[in-house]
């Protein structure tokens, strides 16, 4: 995980009510099950943290989207960009991402530069290492209280967490 206290770090990407149970979602925006998991968790009163789980076997796009998310985070727009990306997962080529960034009012030149930044690379790499070390075996991987689970969380899974 990137160190949130490091200068210019985008920090961990967390949202949801303080004090609610935390679910860390290791995901890839291009993965359908991750999209489903994101929707299911987003509708629940949970604290959600997104971490990238970008596998090179899936080609360049998952990584390209992850760099866009990191770059958006530097302009405090991680979640808005992720929401937009999740809403149009089949249209996330670079020009689409630039358009979304512009729509969100980001400085697009800076966004584009930040995507290629080594800190962006490091953050994505750190998330992957963490997922592998935790024993994640596929996307989405859900981390709750130090335990990894896989698949799309259903209502019962979420209810048990909130219980």
């Amino acid at each position: 995980m990137s160190d949130p206290s490091a200068p210019g770090s985008s920090g961990p990407h967390v949202r949801g009510p303080e004090g609610a149970p935390l679910v860390v979602l290791f995901g890839d925006v291009t993965c359908v099950r991750c999209q489903q998991a994101y929707l299911a968790l987003g509708d629940a009163p949970l604290r959600l943290q997104w971490r990238h789980f970008v596998l090179r076997a899936r080609g360049p796009q998952p990584r390209a989207i992850a760099t866009a998310l990191e770059a958006a985070a530097r302009q405090d727009a991680f979640w808005p960009l992720l929401d937009r990306a999740m809403a149009q997962p089949a249209r996330l080529e670079d020009p689409d991402l630039w358009r979304i960034a512009a729509d969100l009012g980001l400085d697009v030149d800076r966004f584009r530069a930040d995507r290629r930044d080594e800190r962006t690379d490091a953050a994505i790499g750190a998330d992957l290492s963490a997922a592998l070390t935790l024993g994640a075996t596929g996307t989405p991987a859900l981390l709750v209280d130090g335990t990894i689970d896989h698949g799309v969380p259903d209502a019962a899974w979420i209810a048990a967490l909130l219980d």
Partner: peptide, 13 residues
């Protein structure tokens, strides 16, 4: 489906 993810994850090694 399950095997699919497994080998893609191992590819990272």
């Amino acid at each position: 489906p399950v095997c699919t993810d497994q080998l893609q994850v191992y590819e990272e090694l």
